[in-house]
C-alpha cells in the first residue's frame, strides 16, 4: 500500500508545472524514504531530478519500493481539478499499480473529490550523476535568474555564464546585438532571500542554451533562491530547494566554437 498526503496541495501543482515542459512521461519512484523522479528530455540535453522526503507528507506510507509510470500531461489535467488550498492525497496499490488515486479535500473537509489516473509502463534510462565538487557555486534570488534568462532571450538563444570571485556575468550575443547582466555578491542579513553569494574554487566560463534555462525557471515559485553549480566541461546544476526536498535540473553545456 502506498499513501502520501500533502497538506500544501499547491506545492504538487507547482512541482508538476516545473517538470512537465521538459518531460512528458516519467516514473515516480516511491520508497520508504520518499518519492523521487529522474527524467531526461527527448534530446538528452537536460535532466530533471526531483526528491520529496517522506517526512514532508502526513501521513506517508510505502511498504515496498515501486514505480508509478505517469503521463505528466494527463496528471496535469487532473491536478487542475484540485483547489490551490486543497489537501492532496496520492494512493496506489503497490503490488498491482495500474492506476493512481488522487484525493482532493478542501480545508473545511466538506468537499472531497477523487480521481483515478491510469498508469503506464515507462522504460526510462537512468543516469548515474556523480557527486561533484563544483568550481563555482552561486546562490541568487530565483526571480532574478528568471528575469535574466527572459531578458537575454531577446538577444540570443545562448548565454555564456562567467563566474569569478567578484561577479557572475551572463552574456548573450545575437544578430541584433549583444547584452550582458553582471551581478555582484551581496549579503542582506535581514533579507537572506535577496542575497547573492559566490563560492569559487576557480573561474568558470560555460555556454548554455537559454531555451532550456528558461524552462528550468519554471521552478521559480518553489523557492526564493536558486543555486547554480558550474564546473568546466561539466553539466550545469540548477537547484531549487524546498522544505520537503528539492528539484534539480542538469544541462549539458555547449561545446567547441
Amino acid at each position: 500500500m502506498f499513501e502520501a498526503r500533502l497538506t500544501q496541495g499547491a506545492l504538487l501543482k507547482r512541482l508538476l508545472d516545473s517538470v512537465k515542459e521538459l518531460v512528458t512521461d516519467a516514473n515516480f519512484d516511491c520508497s520508504e524514504t520518499g518519492i523521487s523522479l529522474q527524467a531526461m528530455d527527448n534530446s538528452h540535453v537536460a535532466l530533471v531530478s526531483l526528491s520529496l522526503r517522506a517526512e514532508g507528507f502526513n501521513p506517508y506510507r510505502c511498504d515496498r519500493g515501486f514505480s508509478l509510470g505517469v503521463n505528466l500531461n494527463s496528471l496535469n489535467k487532473i491536478m487542475k481539478c484540485a483547489g490551490n488550498e486543497d489537501v492532496i492525497t496520492l494512493k496506489a496499490d503497490d503490488s498491482s499499480a495500474d492506476s493512481l488515486c488522487l484525493l482532493f479535500e478542501n480545508s473545511s473537509n466538506e468537499r472531497v473529490s477523487e480521481y483515478e489516473l491510469k498508469l503506464m509502463d515507462i522504460d526510462q534510462e537512468h543516469l548515474s550523476i556523480p557527486e561533484t565538487d563544483y568550481d563555482a557555486t552561486v546562490m541568487m534570488p530565483s526571480a532574478e535568474f528568471q528575469r535574466i534568462c527572459r531578458d537575454l532571450m531577446v538577444v540570443s538563444e545562448s548565454v555564456t555564464i562567467d563566474v569569478s570571485k567578484d561577479e557572475i556575468k551572463f552574456t548573450a550575443e545575437g544578430e541584433l546585438g549583444t547584452g550582458n547582466v553582471k551581478l555582484k555578491p551581496t549579503s542582506t542579513i535581514d533579507k537572506p532571500e535577496e542575497s547573492i553569494t559566490i563560492e569559487l574554487g576557480q573561474t568558470v566560463s560555460l555556454q548554455f542554451s537559454l531555451k532550456y534555462l528558461s524552462n528550468f525557471t519554471r521552478g521559480t515559485p518553489l523557492s526564493d533562491q536558486v543555486m547554480l553549480c558550474l564546473s568546466d566541461n561539466m553539466p550545469l546544476l540548477v537547484e531549487y530547494k524546498m522544505d520537503i526536498g528539492y528539484i534539480r535540473y542538469y544541462l549539458a553545456p555547449k561545446v567547441g566554437d
Partner: peptide
C-alpha cells in the same frame, strides 16, 4: 558556432 552537448557524454547510464 558552439554545438549542444548531450548528457550521455558526461553521465553514465545505470
Amino acid at each position: 558556432a558552439a554545438t549542444q552537448g548531450r548528457l550521455d557524454s558526461f553521465f553514465t547510464q545505470v
